[in-house]
């Protein structure tokens, strides 16, 4: 098997250590960073996503693959940046104010990273004002809001309203998700997208970035 194939396999198997070593070997052998990403790393994560979608992988396998992808990406990303190659998109993610739940949000963040996005995770119980500050500081393409409680869903609406009154709503796409959230609610509060599961959230983000 070639080194390229081995990196693909290492990511598929969630082997972060091998993934990093193989990526370094490939770069040392003169493989371009862009080729490494487009021909092996992203296809590997696409395959991981497929295996998850058809219920052959559980979340642990998926996240370990994401971790392996990240290990290789740490080597590759500076080279990509130096060559002017940008990530798929930049995402700001957080659980809205008053809500301390973060497993679903963490999962989406990990999958987005695995999908080539640059992710900035603000954590849980994030105030609308903090989202605004972070938009100014980080200039994300997408803001992802999570909520698990029916009584914290209204904080999604107030966050979007705060983005609007701060004049940054049109600078970003806002996507929402979480157990009690529905597509109808997402439409009502003026979100740009809604997903009812983590892997679909990655596709949604890609769609919003115009990258299928």
């Amino acid at each position: 098997m070639s080194e390229k194939g081995q990196l693909f396999e290492a990511i598929l198997n969630g082997d972060a250590r091998s993934s990093r070593v193989l990526a370094q070997q490939a770069l040392d052998a003169g493989v371009s960073a862009l080729d490494l990403v487009t021909e092996q790393m992203i296809p590997a994560m696409d395959e991981v996503g497929r295996l998850f979608s058809c219920e052959e992988y559980f979340v642990p396998e998926l996240l370990l693959s994401g971790r392996a992808m990240k290990a290789a990406l740490e080597l590759v990303r500076p080279l990509l940046a130096a060559g002017g190659v940008k990530p798929t998109g930049r995402v700001l993610i957080g659980t809205v104010k008053g809500d301390l739940h973060d497993i679903g949000k963490n999962l989406v963040a990990s999958l987005l990273e695995g999908g080539g996005f640059e992710v900035h995770d603000l954590g849980a119980d994030v105030s609308p004002e903090r989202f605004v500050e972070s938009i100014h500081a980080l200039q994300p393409d997408i803001v992802a809001l999570s909520a698990l409680l029916t009584v914290t869903m209204p904080a999604m609406r107030s966050t979007i309203e705060t983005l609007r009154s701060a004049g940054v709503r049109d600078c970003v796409k806002v996507i929402v998700g979480g157990a009690p959230v529905t597509r109808q609610y997402a439409d009502e509060i003026g979100a740009d997208g809604y997903s009812d599961n983590a892997s679909a959230a990655v596709q949604l983000a890609r769609d919003l970035m115009g990258r299928n």
Binding site: F58, V59, P60, E61, L63, L64, R67, D102, I103, N106, L107, S110
Partner: peptide, 8 residues
Amino acid sequence: DEGLMYGD
């Protein structure tokens, strides 16, 4: 939480 997510 971390243990569950990574099956650790």
